[in-house]
Amino acid sequence: MGSRSRYLWLLPSAALLGVILALPLLKGLAGGVPGIGDALRDPAVGRAAWNTCLFAGISVPLELGLGLAFALLLNRDFRGRGLARALAILPWALPTAVMALSWRWIFSDSWGIANDLPRALGLLEEPVPWLGRPGTAMAALIAADVWKTTPFVTLILLAGLQGVPSDLYEAMSLDGAGPVRRFFWVTLPLLRPSIALALVFRLIQALGIFDLVWVLTGGGPADATRTISLEAYDSVFRHLEPGRGAAVTLLAAAGMFAVALVLGALARGRGDA
């Protein structure tokens, strides 16, 4: 097999992307180039970018932590593990827009369980309109997103764990290493590529968050949850300014690309990046 022919392995995927996405992307984004300067100076874009970073900066680490804990748990042997795995996937399988509607009801000040439960437990005296105050609305958004997307991380890390050879553990156990040491010396280093993968794609998804915000808060109150993709979407479909939408998208994509690559490389470790 010649060295050129190795690239043949890439052909199907290149064809799929080339035929379906490349041209529309070029057409859709080319119109955005002249507007980049204006978008950079636009305070609305800056505000949305800040909200987006705040959202991703809090929700992604939470998801990685929870996802890792769940994956470790689900990798152990116990009765009912199949069912537990099914439950763990469930939030990811629910259509976002619909489940966001559920969350709106859950956070309601009157008939929402996010008020009823803490009140029944004596944690709250007055009902809190979670989605009606700038700070709590962002917190509610993060909670809903962590719930929805932790399974994505869990699934990737679980697959990564299943690739960790069990003989390594046995060897370590014979050396008298405890579970904590085994985790830090064996599991975590071997999981690094999976963690990097989950991190990169969760970051991209979180920085591009749309449906959940759209339904849950619409970007409010007082623009406190308005994210960058809401800004882009409104430009295209509400204000009929596809050029501005493309400019905002280009900026956001450039930022996302840089952040994802840097953090991904860090998570993967130097040797492999």
């Binding site: 996405l21 529309p24 493309a246």
Partner: peptide, 13 residues
């Protein structure tokens, strides 16, 4: 790079 663009922007093209 292809993962960075939301379907909303790609929709019309």
């Amino acid at each position: 790079a292809f993962a960075l663009f939301p379907p909303a922007v790609l929709l019309v093209p």
